[in-house]
Design a protein around this nucleic acid. Structure first.
Lengths: 242, 242
DNA sequence: GCGGCTACGTACAGAAGTGAACAGACGGGT
DNA sequence: ACCCGTCTGTTCACTTCTGTACGTAGCCGC
């Protein structure tokens, strides 16, 4: 029987009342994915929806002609991947990758859609989350257009450690730079700047955030605006509640 | 009675069979909007879905702390705005603006949702378009991260003139620069570069594309990738068709 | 303990983009 | 025809970022 411990929960499903969760439960499976696992390749049919639990995080990557893949948005236990915006089974546009391994819920999109058709609260929840995902991508477009690499790097580190729940990201500077679509040497210089100010520590294959507060002052406020939209929109799944 | 002339049609609705179009028709109204009109402000309840017809185009803008508004995606007669990704009535995150005035269809989102619940083809159409819109925003995130301003400016001009159907965009360089989140003087320099190569002509308050082919060689291929996804995904609204 | 691989830190030349400033050109209103 | 506000083209000093290059440090396997 599927259940969520408080440590390994999906925040998205956590707001559901037991009756609505029970609609999903028969088709929910628990899967363990590892960092680097590919959930969808571009063109793959999206037949399953994945919901990160606990510290698991994923990202969508867009592959460009030049061969590089650029990260678009980070998805942690606040969200879901696959069949969120569209319904039924369509070819994936972006690649979905696990960035921090752990537990996920997985449900076939056709069962999810069927459960949504039976529970307005469930339909509302996913529709509201889709709206929040849209806010997230919109903000990222603007962010990439105007914010400096320093601001974006700080933003990304904060977003990652907040979801992971530890002040530590396992990732080479090469990977970080590639995700952001920037040069490795410049990423290194930005991290050195953060390090000199005592905001992060670097090591081979990882970065630790040692002063989250000061690092967030270096970051643009894009994440905050998106978080505010999450709060506003996902508060109303059960409209009868005051 | 609502009907579409071939000159002022919505490409999105044009694929519908008469029976499915008839479900929408009683609640469709024809509205005329002008360049600069604001369709939604951030925070507004999204109660209507708008479908550009003919040469009408709109964009979503994200407003940043600095006071500037950055354009995210262009929507012409291939698409729709409002209640596409989420359903019901939620507060808008981005501002939606008319960039090139003209005719639109407008339908209350609750009637649209009701029609979708009665016609699988209609539901499929909007779900598929939502997936394409997602592809468009994902691509824009990557594009803004890695492509030069020259590539992005060329891309934007091509996208605009293709939707308008004339080689001419009415817009000051100041507005263009502001939309792209770049400095006005640099925008001017890029346009001068295009002009010297005979790709565009500039005038006070507007830009004409005089050599679309060569200009598209200066552009990144982001639009092409998104267009390919549109073709792949929106072809299957009526799956019984071969 | 050593070799070899990979990641990291740094330097440098140059390209891309910024922001302020200013002269001149255009065009609408009277 | 003229005025005036706005848009355009261009320059300049400066910052950000790129791409390459190279020496070094950490780590794994043997």
């Amino acid at each position: 029987m599927a259940s969520q411990t408080s440590l390994e929960q999906s925040d998205l499903l956590a707001v559901l009342r037991p009756g609505d969760f029970a609609l999903l439960e028969p088709n929910l499976s628990e899967v363990q994915l590892r960092s680097g696992d590919v959930i969808y390749q571009p063109g793959d049919q999206v037949d399953y929806c994945y919901l990160p639990r606990g510290a698991s995080i994923c990202s969508f990557f867009v592959e460009l002609d030049s061969g590089i893949s650029v990260e678009t948005i980070l998805v942690g236990r606040e969200g879901a991947l696959g069949g969120v915006v569209s319904h039924g089974s369509l070819p994936a546009y972006a690649r979905a990758n696990v960035l921090h391994g752990g537990l996920f819920w997985r449900i076939p999109t056709r069962h999810l859609d069927e459960a949504k058709s039976r529970s307005p609260a469930l339909a509302s929840l996913f529709s509201r989350y889709a709206d929040c995902m849209m806010a997230q991508v919109f903000q990222s477009i603007a962010c990439n257009a105007v914010h400096t690499i320093e601001e974006r790097a700080a933003k990304w580190l904060i977003a990652a450690v907040d979801r992971i729940g530890r002040n530590d990201v396992t990732m080479t500077q090469e990977q970080l730079a590639s995700m952001m679509g920037i040069g490795r040497s410049y990423a290194s210089r930005v991290l050195q700047r953060f390090k000199r100010e005592g905001l992060v520590r670097t090591r081979r294959g990882g970065i630790s955030v040692s002063d989250r507060g000061s690092l967030s002052e270096k970051a643009c406020s894009c994440n905050d605006h998106v978080a505010a939209h999450f709060g506003k929109v996902l508060g109303g799944v059960y409209p009868s509640e005051v």
